[in-house]
């Protein structure tokens, strides 16, 4: 790009100018979009002779919902994808895959975290609890009951994340007031808009003195 270009041109001209520059940078009429250079470089590195080694899986030992698991995973596999695709624990949801919605919330060693941004290899020796692991047999967790009672959901897709987050929110001591709950639950997006009912459910469990 032309580094000496003035910023003071009228908007429209500027617009066209920068467009031309971009086109110039990408060889006039043909814009070449390739895999980003970072990826291409890394791919080259990985795909050469080291190919077999690079794609070997790594063993990981962890506990999921109380059961010890020995898994063989690629280092790049996220906890979310392994739960859903390898272990068929599909209660944990993928809503964005970038840590922006909270649908994938699980507890790791009792803390709420986002499984979409957690690499499984980094969970060695840890205890993971998912939505499938909080009821005691047929007896629902108080938070699950409260969600049903207060209709804290519609489509149900964000619900497991909201419930896991809600339980942790109380345990953390961030459910003292309604405003606190709203702030500390803001990492769990509900597009159906069940928020007020979710808050009611959390308040009820909080006031009932329930802990996970």
């Amino acid at each position: 790009m032309d580094k000496n270009k003035s910023n003071k041109k009228p908007e429209k001209e500027d617009h066209q100018e920068s467009r031309r520059d971009f086109l110039k940078a990408s060889s006039i009429l043909t814009a070449i979009a390739v895999a980003p250079a970072t990826v291409a470089k890394a791919a080259e590195y990985n795909l050469g002779e080291k190919i077999s080694a690079a794609f070997e899986t790594t063993p990981v030992n962890l506990t999921i919902n109380g059961a010890k698991k020995q898994l063989a995973v690629e280092p790049r596999s996220t906890l979310l994808d392994v739960l859903r695709e390898q272990l068929n624990l599909t209660g944990t949801k993928k809503g964005c895959d970038y840590g922006q919605c909270g649908a994938c919330t699980v507890h790791v060693n009792g803390q709420r975290v986002l499984s979409c941004l957690s690499l499984v290899v980094m969970q060695e020796g840890k205890e993971v609890t998912t939505i499938e692991g909080i009821a005691k047999g047929d007896e629902l967790h108080p938070m699950q009951k409260a969600f049903i009672k207060h209709d804290g959901f519609q489509c149900g897709y964000c619900t497991p994340g909201q419930i896991m987050s809600g339980i942790a929110c109380i345990n953390e001591g961030h459910a003292e007031t309604k405003e606190d709950i709203k702030e500390f639950m803001s990492g769990n997006i509900c597009r159906c808009g069940a928020y007020p009912n979710i808050v009611k459910a959390i308040q009820e469990v909080k006031n009932g003195g329930q802990k996970s």
């Binding site: 859903r84 209660g91 949801k93 993928k94 939505i131 049903i148 959901f153 149900g156 619900t159």
Partner: peptide
Amino acid sequence: LDRVDGRLKVTGAAKYSAEYP
């Protein structure tokens, strides 16, 4: 009335499109 599929939704047992193995 409580949602008839409430239990499935709060336990993670409700299966959405990408969740059939």
